[in-house]
Design a protein around this nucleic acid. Structure first.
Lengths: 217, 217
DNA sequence: CCCGTTATTGGACACTTGCGCAACAGCGGC
DNA sequence: GCCGCTGTTGCGCAAGTGTCCAATAACGGG
């Protein structure tokens, strides 16, 4: 394959790994898969990464990092902290068979066996919580929120949203996107001292295509 | 190996699979691992299970089912719904490197690739939510809780606890058991119309051995 | 133009994976 | 005591795994 500069090739490998992970999951992505995707030999990957763990960690960090940056930009653009939280919830809620969130599931499970992947997922999760905490503090400062413990509230909102998204993605049938949004919004409103429905999220989210209308509990 | 009756052998296989999964994780458990653990040939496992997916699903169902039954018994014994919720939180919070919860992480991730495992994890998650909902309804009925939507509250509490436990287990350093308990209790109290601290959970849980006191965010 | 650097190859290595199948062994019924 | 049922073996198969390395190819500087 065409010779490439060191940093470009690294990028290409990460990109290819991501493309495979999107189809097969992070945990099921192998060196040869990535090489085939890139149209190169498998040896090349080990010329840039010490181990498969590193490749997966880099790939995961790329995606999750992008999502994070995107949200950070949104945070800077928005003027109302309330709108930031609302948009956070909307963007976090998985759409269809959400492969990005499936990557998080894989990362959490694989963390036990892949130190570098654990390191990456740990760092990114922390960054998400920090971002949320910052937004809450901003809202408290400008008087739109009431919240006694922003750090705790941030972890609670993040964890709730993770737990709900997990149900949506792992078992499509139990909880759907609309439920998730409505429930998460209600919890966030209570957490931030907002009136019911103040976030303007939840109740009727026609986006959730009825893949298979589930028997609700 | 000694000949066994059909149902006993099935049990033995599930038990062995569990022993392996405890050490290596559900996703990394192989036919040969299970056979070695049982001291038998690998062919034997396929004589009882059509595929590895089935073995893992059965193993997961065994453990998670046991935990569920245990909690159901506790629920029947306890008289105060408040005490049931408190005990639920305490028993759900992972201790040390909690291998049972790691099994859940594996199950959620593997669900995408193993239909039977997904089926089992889906069913069990639903059962947990139902149990919680029942408890909440009981509490509302006898006047100890105030809650407008017990089903939604059940899913919220369960998801929050899953999301927090996930942080504790997957990234040991970020959130610890004491945080998790305190935060989950606070959320549950608010959710159920209880006074702050009414559940008597959280704040000072000396059980959480300081494996490595983490740099908190 | 040559030469050192380095990206890239492709296969070797030592394993592991899930699954299938002919053969064998041990028990219960006759 | 023999026969048939079935639990059990042990190996074969085809494919896959991460890692390593000698050989090759392409580029830039001298």
């Amino acid at each position: 394959m065409a010779r490439m500069a060191r940093s470009e090739r690294r990028d290409a490998i990460v990109e290819a790994a991501l493309a495979v992970a999107r189809r097969k999951g992070l945990g099921a992505t192998s060196v040869r898969d990535v090489a085939r995707e890139m149209g190169s030999s498998s040896g090349l990957i080990h010329h840039y990464f010490d181990s498969m763990d590193d490749v997966l960690a880099a790939a995961f960090e790329r995606i999750a990092g992008e999502d994070l940056t995107q949200t950070e930009i949104m945070l800077d653009d928005a003027d109302e902290p309330r709108e930031v939280i609302a948009e956070f919830l909307r963007s976090y809620a998985p759409v269809g068979d959400d492969w990005a969130f499936q990557l998080w599931l894989d990362a959490w499970a694989e963390a036990a066996r892949r130190p570098h992947l654990r390191e990456a997922s740990s760092r990114l999760n922390l960054a998400w919580a920090a971002l949320l905490e910052r937004t809450i503090r901003a809202g408290v400062a400008d008087g739109s929120f009431r919240c006694g413990d922003p750090a705790a509230a941030a972890w609670r909102i993040l964890s709730l949203v993770d737990g709900l998204a997990l149900q949506v993605v792992a078992h499509q049938t139990i909880v759907d996107r609309a439920d998730m949004l409505a429930w998460a919004a209600a919890a966030a409103e209570s957490e931030l001292g907002l009136a019911n429905g103040a976030l303007g999220v939840g109740h009727a989210t026609p986006l959730a295509a009825p893949l298979a209308t589930p028997p609700r509990a």
